[in-house]
């Protein structure tokens, strides 16, 4: 768990971050969202003391981060940056081994660990462990950077625009892999992005920031359906329909959907969003799909029309 309390930062008299407070529960992902220059990256870097806050306090898992030596603190916090920051003179395996080595793991444990991570990230160790970063594609580099951040199994992960340097197609692919990675499910994550779609896809909570201050903190649903101000509304206006559909899950509208005969194999899960349902419908070019409930064996049937009418009903009568 991360608790940031009134953290501020000024650079030569200019306030970059003003009294920012938030809390990230264990295993949750908080997204710091905003335009460039809004203070989101500065806020992130204050959490592992890459930037020293001017005032305020940060506790990670109950410990005041200023009570630790910065090096020791950082070894327990994974960090992924936009430009991957891989050591160009280290192989993939050596890059991954950096933090475990610093914390004194033995050789076998390190090699076992990097082997596992590479396998999870679909970069088989046999082929990739001995390669150098400049022999990898952008997406592969970013996956190695993630593996490096996860190597010593830190409870907390900080990610600064982790997909920012990738082209849109690669970005969508890598993001999907991240979402599915079992390692990440248990981590407490703070992620910085300017991409609204990405924030909605990855964030349990989103902090929308502007000019160094938090404008609104909440779930994606809170932000899109209960914006705190016109700023929030305007910020999200471009992709409103898509964001609304992404923030609604089938379980939110479960009782409004028509039943399907139980026992059939479902195409989707009730915790997936309406947007994902629409995507799958158009991808598979099928009239209808089946959604299974996450907790029981109930199955519902969806078509483009049902999603559309349920969505409109929801809007009229929330």
């Amino acid at each position: 768990m991360i608790i940031a309390n009134n953290i501020s930062k000024d650079f030569n008299g200019i306030q970059a971050v003003k009294d920012v407070c938030f809390q990230v529960n264990e295993g949750q992902t908080l997204v710091l969202l905003g335009t460039s220059g809004c203070g989101k990256t500065t806020t992130l870097k204050m959490l592992n003391r890459l930037i020293q806050p001017s005032s305020g306090s940060v506790h990670i898992n109950g410990e005041d981060i200023f009570s630790l030596k910065p090096e020791i603190l950082r070894r327990s916090i994974g960090y992924v940056s936009q430009n991957n920051g891989l050591f160009p003179h280290y192989t993939v395996a050596e890059n991954i081994a950096i933090v475990p080595k610093l914390t004194g793991w033995d050789k076998n444990k390190i090699s076992q660990r990097s082997h596992d991570l590479l396998k999870q990230l679909k970069l088989p160790a046999g082929e990739y462990a001995g390669k150098y970063p400049d022999e990898l594609s952008g997406g592969q580099k970013q996956r190695v950077a993630l593996a490096r951040a996860l190597a010593a199994d830190p409870p907390v992960l900080l990610m600064d625009e982790p997909f920012g340097a990738l082209d849109p197609i690669t970005r969508a692919g890598v993001r999907k892999e991240f979402l599915e990675l079992p390692e990440l499910k248990s981590k407490t994550i703070v992620l910085v992005t300017h991409d609204v779609q990405e924030a909605f896809e990855l964030g349990d909570q989103i902090c929308l920031m502007d000019q160094g201050k938090i404008i609104q903190t909440g779930t994606p649903k809170d932000l899109i359906f209960r914006p705190a101000s016109d700023f929030v509304r305007n910020f999200l206006s471009h992709q409103r329909l898509q964001l609304e559909l992404s923030s609604l899950k089938f379980e939110d509208i479960w009782h409004r959907l028509p039943d399907a005969p139980s026992g059939l194999e479902a195409d989707l899960n009730s915790i997936q969003s309406l947007w994902e349902g629409m995507e799958l419908l158009s991808e598979k070019k099928q009239e209808k799909l089946l959604v299974g409930h996450a907790d029981n064996s109930a199955v519902k049937e969806i078509t483009i029309q049902t999603i559309q009418s349920v969505y409109l009903e929801m809007k009229r009568n929330p």
Partner: peptide, 27 residues
Amino acid sequence: VDPAVTESAVAMGMNKWQILLSVQLPL
């Protein structure tokens, strides 16, 4: 030396000497 590389070295918890000897000097 690429500042992104030195920053990631700091962020991983290397101290000044470790960064000098294993990152800055070799690069």
